[in-house]
Amino acid sequence: MIYALCLMLIAVGLYGVVVKKNVVKIVISLAIMEYGINLLLILVGYRAGGHAPIMEPGASPAEFAAGAVDPLPQALVLTSIVIGLGVLAMMVAICIRLYERYGTFDITEMRRLRG
């Protein structure tokens, strides 16, 4: 059920990427897709009733390991979120350049990009 909702979020992003013709809309859809995928990875590592993988003073390692959520997806998703920001900045820079060159955000009117 949760996985299905998450997949729908990814599908909404994909729909925006392939159907919309405004460049900024495509960037926004890519951001939504990225949110969905990050959330999916965290969901896979979730343990029902688990606590955050941060040790408290006096906790025994065995008990801690038995009750914590998976730290590995969290570490990698942290990386992915930050990279997502850098890539978004670059995409927006390209959008601004395209707007200055063609005077529009509409990809069907950018003749030289037509394939």
């Binding site: 993988p53 390692p61 390991a65 969290q74």
Partner: peptide, 19 residues
Amino acid sequence: YLAEGLDRTGAANIVTAVI
């Protein structure tokens, strides 16, 4: 990572230990 993270890295937060 969860079981040995504190001993091997000295970090209480296992996510930062992994990163």
